[in-house]
């Protein structure tokens, strides 16, 4: 269960600058390569495919030539408070770690009841409807640091928590027992070509993220739910912020009108 007010020293979080993001998809591809995410022949069925990081495309709904689009990459929000998925899991297969703020899981403990998926407001979690299968020799590129899941379990973005372990191992090898800035970075952040994604300890002013989250451009998805996501977004466009359902009062009217303006 999450704490009422986060007191822990380290809270890993992410800031994604939507002004910079071009929706190129490199973060998602890097994530899926890193985390041994399976793929299927028909990936167009978005309701059943597996994506730890999904890129949503939203439009401002204006007519040509005033139409604009924005891309919202959506990893796990790593909710800090009332973490919805953690409290509902009947088998304690998912957990909020106070020392890092990561919402992690044991896929081999999951019984596949999918209650967490119903609970997650961000559609972050994916169920393994099929056994993962890699064609031909594709198994050879699988990352040994992440165990492939089996069918019948739910999985989600972990902020590449295995990279945290690796970073610690590397630090110890160098005779340190602490992590330095930049030691631990999730695959998506590393892959972003325009540095639209930032990662680090939200409590540590040494990290850029700690400052960025105070920017007037910063907002989070579905803030009204008070899940306190640790993934922040930056945008200078009001309409993008409205898409995030950031402001209950303004959203009310905008909500229904803008329903049509979604791309994916």
């Amino acid at each position: 269960m999450s704490t009422e007010s986060p007191q822990q020293s380290v809270r890993y979080g992410m800031v994604i600058d939507l002004d910079k993001c071009t929706g190129c998809g490199n973060c998602a591809v890097a994530c899926h390569m890193e985390n041994n995410v399976p793929f299927r022949t028909d990936e167009s069925d978005k309701s059943r495919n597996m994506a730890w990081l999904r890129i949503y495309k939203v439009k401002n709904g204006a007519e040509y030539p005033h139409a604009r689009v924005a891309y919202i990459p959506r990893p796990c929000m790593q909710c800090d408070r009332h973490t919805p998925c953690v409290s509902v899991c009947p088998a304690s297969a998912t957990n909020y770690d106070k020392s890092t703020g990561l919402v992690d899981q044991i896929n081999t403990r999951c019984i596949g009841c999918r209650y967490c998926m119903a609970a997650c407001p961000y559609m972050v979690r994916c169920f393994n409807w099929w056994d993962p299968a890699w064609p031909a020799d594709a198994e050879k590129y699988l990352n040994p640091d992440v165990a492939p899941r089996m069918r019948g379990v739910v999985e989600k973005c972990t902020f590449c928590s295995h990279r945290y372990i690796q970073a610690k191992n590397r630090a110890r090898q160098e005779g340190r027992n602490y992590l330095e800035k930049g030691d631990y970075i999730p695959a998506c952040v590393e892959a972003c070509p325009v540095e639209a994604m930032h990662f680090g300890d939200l409590n540590d002013p040494e990290y850029e993220v700690a400052h960025l989250i105070k920017s007037p451009r910063a907002f989070r998805l579905l803030e009204r739910l008070h899940t306190e996501p640790k993934v922040y977004y930056l945008s200078s466009h009001e309409w993008v912020r409205r898409w995030a359902d950031n402001d209950a009062v303004n959203t009310q009217s905008a909500y229904s009108q803008q329903r049509q303006g979604v791309e994916s």
């Binding site: 269960m1 409290s87 509902v88 899991c89 009947p90 088998a91 304690s92 297969a93 403990r109 999951c110 019984i111 596949g112 009841c113 999918r114 209650y115 169920f127 393994n128 089996m150 069918r151 019948g152 379990v153 739910v154």
Partner: peptide, 23 residues
């Protein structure tokens, strides 16, 4: 049949999470 891993079904007793309504 509804849960994805029936053979692990007993985990909800063994590793019960008292906060969950489902438990």
């Amino acid at each position: 049949i509804d849960i994805g891993q029936p053979l692990r079904g007993y985990f909800s007793f063994w590793h019960a999470n008292v906060h969950s309504m489902l438990t």
